[in-house]
Design a protein around this nucleic acid. Structure first.
Lengths: 99, 99
DNA sequence: CCACCTCATAGCGTCAATGCTATGGGATGA
DNA sequence: TCATCCCATAGCATTGACGCTATGAGGTGG
């Protein structure tokens, strides 16, 4: 169980890469979005397959995304938002000290 | 001037494609983000080259993005946000009737 | 024990975004 | 007129996200 190419490992490796604060942030953002979608999906009482169908993708794609296996693209986020009856909101917020 | 592969044409073509409401939305979102970045950049009094350097990319990439030539990825948005001293904010907002 | 559902992953082909270099045109100033 | 700066595009290679199929492990119910 050393170098299995699991998504989680991929993610952790990516976040551990040096000098790439943006990549780190993007990966973290992807992870958080994945969790949010999972919560929303469970809130609807849907299985990954059902959400997949509603969003025009496959169950494996949903699983990959929820696990934070890849950094999603805007079109995908848009489709998921629609399927979950949400509105995708992307913007450059003022940097109030920020974390 | 019929089939030149300009970004603007690409974008319009993409937005005109049938049956792809999500793609349409994503393309529109990309366009709006591009404009926002342009405003922020001008607010800083920076040239595309300066912003490019600050965000770790090239002037051509900035121009392409500002023109809405492509649907940007989260890592790129993240880098631009940092360079412009902003915080990238992505989330699934409640669909209050929405447009 | 078997059938079935849910979720996690692997593997692979395709496509599009990104990164880069190089132009070209429009201003502007020496 | 020439040197410069800014922005728009082209063209090309690389890379990573996505889509799909298939499999495997864990539950659950008959």
């Amino acid at each position: 169980m050393s170098d299995r190419l699991e998504w989680k490992n991929l993610r952790e490796r990516r976040m551990a890469e040096p000098g790439a604060a943006e990549t780190y942030e993007a990966t973290r953002l992807a992870f958080e979005l994945g969790q949010e979608v999972r919560h929303l999906r469970e809130g609807h009482g849907w299985s990954q397959s059902q959400l997949a169908r509603a969003a025009g993708m496959t169950q494996s794609a949903v699983a990959r995304f929820e696990a934070g296996g890849t950094v999603p693209t805007l079109p995908v986020l848009e489709r998921l938002a629609r399927a979950l009856d949400r509105r995708l909101d992307v913007r450059f917020a003022a940097n109030a000290d920020a974390a």
